[in-house]
């Protein structure tokens, strides 16, 4: 519980501090896979960013978005990991070497690494990211 509220403050601060960013519609809810991930490509100018979006309908936040790049395995694979919980953390386990990344804080539970977390929401059957 405490973890998710920290994450929420973190998220709202990001939104406040980035007036240039906006909510971008990625896909429909029917494109999501229950208890699993899909990947979105965000193109901003020449920059490309891959975002892994997970749908866990039985958890409080239901939808989570993090960087798709696994900094330990050094490949764009995180959306293909298995999701679940470790203690109170909602996590994805990297499909390459199985480290857990917390989906609300981006922290790796086994190493001093972390990944970006993106605000995500569902509005009118639309899946949106704040990027």
């Amino acid at each position: 519980m405490s973890n998710s509220s920290i994450a929420e403050t973190h998220v709202s601060e990001t939104i406040m501090a980035n007036p240039t960013k906006h909510w971008l519609t990625i896909c429909k809810t029917s494109d999501l896979v229950k208890d699993s991930g899909i990947c979105a490509l965000i193109e901003q100018g020449l920059e490309e960013k891959q975002v892994a979006i997970f749908h866990l309908p039985n958890t409080e936040k239901k939808i989570y978005a993090v960087d798709n790049y696994d900094p330990i395995g050094e490949a764009n694979v995180l959306y293909r990991g298995i999701v679940g919980s470790i203690g109170d953390n909602i996590v994805v386990s990297s499909p390459l070497y199985k480290q857990h990344y917390c989906l609300t804080t981006g922290k790796c539970l086994q190493a001093e690494k972390s990944i970006d977390v993106f605000p995500a929401r569902i509005i009118d059957e639309q899946v949106q990211l704040f990027v």
Binding site: K34, S36, A75, V77, R80, I82, V83, P95, L96
Partner: peptide, 21 residues
């Protein structure tokens, strides 16, 4: 559908994931 999210990536994609994905 009910089993999809249970599988390791190798089973999900019916192939072995290599180091570069």
């Amino acid at each position: 559908k009910a089993h999809l999210s249970l599988q390791d990536t190798n089973d999900t994609y019916l192939g072995n994931m290599q180091k570069d994905g």
